[in-house]
Amino acid sequence: MLKEHSVRERTPWINASSLVRYAHRTRLVTPWLMLAPALLGLSVFVLLPTVAIVGLSFTNWNLMTPHPHWAGVANYRSVLTSFDFWNAMQHTVIYAAAVAIVILPASFGLAWLLNYPLRGRHVYRMIFFLPYVMPLAASGIVFSGLLSPSSGLINILLGHLHITGPNWLGSVHWALIAVIAVTIWEYVGFYMLLFLSGLQQLNPALSEAAAMDGAGSWPRFWHVILPQLIPTIVFAGVMVVIQTFQAFDQIYVMTAGGPVTATTTLVYYIYEQGFQFFNVGQASTASVLFVMLVGAITVIQWRGMHRWGGDGS
């Protein structure tokens, strides 16, 4: 990739001095004018709030008093020892892991299959991608209907098999599984497209060379194709985790975090602490821990990509 300061060396056929003058004129004002709207938005709504959330995590505030009160590390102590926080953390991890374990192999398999010149593969791709355009709240309501205990399609189908279906969303054991199912249904097609893009960037010459050397199809997959796909797989894995860690909409319409706290994830916990109990300090503390977790996962992604030889950018 060409570096900006080497413009002159790379363009000997044009009048170098006028390019330098152009660059000089544009160096001071133009870039900043062009960056200004984006920087303003990001500063006010992302960077400043990030600093603020760290500050608020060291205070107590119920939004009724005009100012927060300094609380030191008390919030960290109480959040990190609170049952509700770890309970929410546990649900988040189970939810993220379950979605990832199903969605990654499933979408990879679909992409692998639909990368062959199979008749109708474009139609299949479209069908699998279709749920992605549904608002999550809409998908959540549709699944609530499908899973409703007496008139829902799922329990009627189970009834035909002489199985009494549970009250899915009203059951502590099944509610989180229902939320996991909606999420998989919603996103499997998106990850399929990601893997398809990875598969189509494979270098066919490598596979052919391996085949010529007498490598069977399994060793070829394992030693030639898979290493080329590592960046895509790592990227998809991290994206699933980040996406599931942020989940809110489907939980809000399907279970509102319940029954009891069976579907209260980290984000839902922060929402409840902040907007229902007006416990800004503890909500902020949980937010800081949440950002650190997401940040750590992102860093691991980049490290992983570099280690496996991907370009990571």
Binding site: T50, A52, Q246
Partner: peptide, 10 residues
């Protein structure tokens, strides 16, 4: 890297 869901209070 910073999701809205983490900074919505400020």
């Amino acid at each position: 890297m910073i999701p809205v869901q983490a900074i919505f209070i400020p």
